[in-house]
Design a binder for these strands. Structure first.
Length: 468
RNA sequence: GUCCCUAUCGUCUAACGGUUAGGACAUCGCCCUUUCACGGCGGUAAUCGGGGUUCGAAUCCCCGUAGGGACACCA
């Protein structure tokens, strides 16, 4: 059978980093098997569903490169079908009206809690034949009383739950709208899901869903319950931990390739390998290799992963991801070296895209002041003469390229009988305004002759203007 | 409280009954070096506790303990 998986978020917030990982696993499983991946929006809770959340989810998926073959399918478009199935369950005796009031149910649960029992509906309306006047009933699924439900989970192994732990869940609200457990079941059946991959916070729903599926005579799909992602306090990752929305990671300067790689390795492994190409991910990924235990999100390692991709991705790809940040930070790169050349020069030292833009400004724009500490240390009396010497040699250069520039700097050191340590730092500060930049030949080459010479002249003036 | 899941360095993990318990991040030292980085070499650091099974247990079983999850007319 052709594999079919889905990602089924509810549009009640950003695309959470944990949801993104689940989506990635589902996507990977479908893609590697040549199957179909579907996006379904579980928006039956109209109170909490928002357009902004939907947009955020779609945006997050797109940014990560998780494309889908079908969808987005909205559950709110399928109410007729849910009503049909609910009627079918009523007709077959698998469901019944329940007239219990909120107060009655609360009292029931309270008593059970007091008796140290698991709060569950006791089925008191199961045999009611007459409606209760003035009460719009809900519809409950008649859960089997005895026997075990076995979840054959690809991640956790077999999970056995006795039907005595389950109760008759509400499948239709008093206003007739279907609830989650019903819609999921109907959709997963109708849409032909072969694998249900979702967070393990759903494990408790699974036996109920299996029971409904069986009542409907449907084939039970395979399940894979993926563990939660925890924050560094060991608690389930949430807004309290700061960055949970996927788009936050774009904003913070992470490369989607790095986020994907970090996410796949969080809770899944293939021997000792850390960095995977997409081809390798598709080749090696197996649901059964997902770790059954929850894992803690670690930003330090994500940072490292981001740097790995910074170093290895084609400059053009990085340039593409950079566009958004360049615009955001208002950097004009129209006058200056080519962006890909700057990427080649900076890729070993940039931590992320935000940092990249910030620390590459001097390639494109002039600066008003120098790094304070460095200025104090490097711009001392006498240095102006050194800079002047180099300036003259550079201006006489027939060709402006790294090799020629390097030769000038080395020759200057020799002629002035100074070590590179005396010449390099002030020259760098003069041209870049900061003590951090690629090697001098690369830096000056990228800054360009005209700008380099002007900046050296300016530095000489600054040094000359200092009180002796 | 009840049920479910989980348990190897601080973190992510490897090990599929026999290893000096391996790798990666972080951290600490050294090297490289014109800055910042990159890189290279090395160090510290783990099988939750107790019982079994076995010639042999991180690995299998049981009991604790701890963490997480679920117990809605939310999804």
């Amino acid at each position: 059978m052709t594999v079919k998986t889905r990602f089924a978020p509810s549009p009640t917030g950003d695309l959470h980093i944990g949801g993104a990982r689940t989506a990635l696993y589902s996507w990977l499983h479908a893609r590697k098997e040549g199957g179909t991946f579907l996006l379904r929006i579980e928006d039956t809770d109209r109170e909490r569903s928002t357009q902004a959340s939907l947009d955020a989810i779609l945006e997050g998926m797109a940014w990560l490169g998780l494309d889908y073959d079908e969808g987005p399918i909205f559950q709110t478009d399928r109410f007729d079908r849910y009503a049909e199935v609910i009627q079918q369950l009523m007709d077959s005796g698998h469901a019944y009206y329940c007239y219990c009031s909120r107060e009655e149910l609360d009292a029931m649960r309270e008593k059970q809690w007091a008796n140290k029992e698991k709060p569950r509906y006791d089925g008191r309306c199961r045999h009611r034949t007459e409606p209760v006047a003035g009460v719009e009933p809900v519809i409950r699924f008649r859960n089997p009383d005895e026997g075990d439900v076995v979840i054959k989970d690809l991640v956790k192994g077999d999970i056995v739950i006795n039907n005595r732990e389950l109760d008759d869940l509400v499948i239709a609200r008093s206003d007739g709208t279907p609830t989650y457990n019903l819609t999921v079941v109907v959709d997963d059946i109708d849409m032909g899901m072969t694998h249900v991959i979702r967070g393990d916070d759903h494990i408790n729903n699974t036996p109920r869903q299996i029971n409904i599926m069986e009542a409907l005579g449907a084939t039970i799909p395979a399940f894979a319950h993926v563990p939660m992602i925890l924050g560094d306090d060991g608690k389930r990752l949430s807004k309290r931990h700061g960055a949970v929305g996927v788009m936050h990671y774009r904003d913070a300067g992470y490369l989607p390739e790095a986020v994907i790689n970090y996410l796949i390795r969080l809770g899944w492994s293939h021997g000792d390998q850390e960095v995977f190409t997409m081809e390798e991910m598709l080749k090696y990924f197996k649901l059964s290799d997902i770790n059954g235990a929850a894992s803690t999100f670690n930003t330090e390692k994500l940072n490292w992963m981001n740097q790995q991709y910074f170093k290895s991705l084609p400059a053009e790809t990085i340039a593409g991801h950079l566009q958004w940040h360049i615009e955001k930070q208002g950097l004009d790169i129209s006058k200056g070296p080519s962006l890909t050349d700057v990427i080649e020069g900076q890729r070993d030292r940039a931590k992320n895209l935000v940092d990249f833009v910030e620390s590459s400004r001097y390639f494109f724009e002039d600066f008003d002041s120098y790094d304070e500490k460095a200025q104090k240390k490097q711009f001392k009396a006498g240095v102006d003469a050194t800079l002047q010497f180099i300036h003259d040699k550079l201006s006489a250069l027939p060709e402006w390229n790294p090799e020629a520039i390097d030769a000038v700097i080395k020759a200057s050191c020799e002629e002035l009988e100074l070590g590179m340590g005396k010449v390099g730092p002030p020259l760098r500060l003069a041209v870049a305004g900061t003590p951090m930049s690629p090697s001098l030949d690369v830096t000056l080459n990228l800054v360009g002759r005209e700008r380099t010479l002007a900046r050296i002249e300016k530095a000489i003036a600054v040094i000359g203007g200092m009180t002796e």
